[in-house]
């Protein structure tokens, strides 16, 4: 059937008239997919305790997203773009498996309502919402987060560990003998936050995102690389534990992996240039090393990223790509 001109309703739009298929929604749900291996492992290690935290955290984040979108007069469909889901998911992954029900609830709402929408919503937030909420909870419920007796993780093989008395293999006191590299890599019997213990699963997800061009490889590489070098070279104090100067242990224990692959790579809160991202990642590595080596806190990943998030606008101001032709001298002066 041919058309006459009269029935043609012409779409007038600005070039380019073709677009790459990638959308925000597509990117966000791919991040969720990338997190699934780690989620699956965490459900094995921590069982229903973890499931409860996931459910509450995600539900709280999505509910807060809907309310905020409604209040701000934004399309409610944005709640399905996956961004709030990721925030809820990531928050749960950095909470202890034994957290009381109100901890993920308050955290999820804080992440979305305060750390995200109060700053103008997706794209405008300065801090990674999940990490901002994690730090908020650290202050709001210090006992819940840091000192409670966390449930012991299930093991893949070997004897079950006793109920551990430390939140993390990086704790400065209390923990038993350091775990083997292999245990750390697999998360076998490793205490810690829900989603951070199985490094293999996190690496698999991270590599998937790098392959999909959703994550810039520079960030995990330079973040982990800097932390590795510095925890190796920085002098240790007098009361250092046996693993203090072991960079491999630092990389494999604690939240560095999940932070480097999934949190320091959050697009919104990291620099937009490649060089800027390298500076960002090196800064994260520096801060986490200093905190672990000289601070009173065993972890430091969350703080390092949130601190560098704060520096991101500055980095984007200072570090820009070289403009094409700006270094070529103009032989003939001419009026522009």
């Amino acid at each position: 059937m041919e058309q006459t001109n009269a029935d043609m309703q012409l779409l007038v739009s600005s070039s380019p008239h073709v677009r790459e298929p990638d959308t925000i929604r597509g990117i966000m749900w791919q991040v969720v997919i990338a997190l699934l291996p780690a989620v699956a492992m965490s459900l094995y290690f921590f069982d229903l305790a973890a499931l409860k935290v996931y459910a509450i955290s995600i539900a709280a984040a999505e509910a807060a997203e809907l309310v905020c979108l409604k209040m701000r007069g934004r399309p409610l469909a944005h709640a399905a773009d996956g961004s709030a889901f990721i925030t809820g998911l990531l928050l749960a992954m950095v909470l202890p498996p034994g957290a009381a029900w109100y901890v993920p609830l308050v955290g999820g709402v804080f992440a979305i309502a305060v750390a995200k929408h109060a700053f103008g919503g997706l794209g405008n937030n300065i801090w990674n919402p999940a990490l901002a909420a994690r730090i908020f909870l650290q202050f709001a419920y210090p006992v819940q987060i840091s000192l409670s007796r966390w449930p012991a993780p299930r093991v893949l093989w070997g004897a079950a560990h006793d109920v551990v008395t430390a939140a993390s293999p990086l704790a400065k006191e209390g923990a038993a003998a350091p775990l083997s590299y292999l245990d750390l890599l697999l998360g076998n019997g490793v205490p810690g936050c829900i989603g951070e213990t199985c490094k293999v699963a996190l690496i698999v997800g991270g590599v998937f995102l790098i392959a999909r061009s959703i994550v810039d490889w520079r960030i995990p590489l330079f973040y982990i690389g800097t932390a590795f070098v510095l925890t190796w070279l920085l002098p240790t104090g007098a009361h250092a534990r046996a693993w203090s100067a072991d960079p491999v242990y630092h990389v494999l224990a604690g939240g560095l992996m999940i932070g480097a692959f999934f949190m320091a790579t959050d697009m919104v809160t990291t620099p937009v240039t490649r060089r800027g991202r390298i500076i960002f990642a090196v800064g994260c590595g520096l801060i986490v090393s200093l905190i672990r080596r000289y601070g009173g806190y065993p972890e430091g990943v969350a703080y390092s990223i949130v601190l560098m998030n704060t520096c991101t606008p500055l980095i984007d101001r200072w570090v820009r790509p070289r403009i094409y032709g700006s270094t070529t001298p103009k032989p003939v002066p001419r009026e522009a």
């Binding site: 739009s13 959308t23 925000i24 944005h78 919503g121 794209g123 697009m267 919104v268 937009v272």
Partner: peptide
């Protein structure tokens, strides 16, 4: 014309 959203700073 695909609907436009806020920049997510993906770079």
């Amino acid at each position: 014309v695909p609907p436009q959203r806020h920049c997510i700073r993906c770079g």
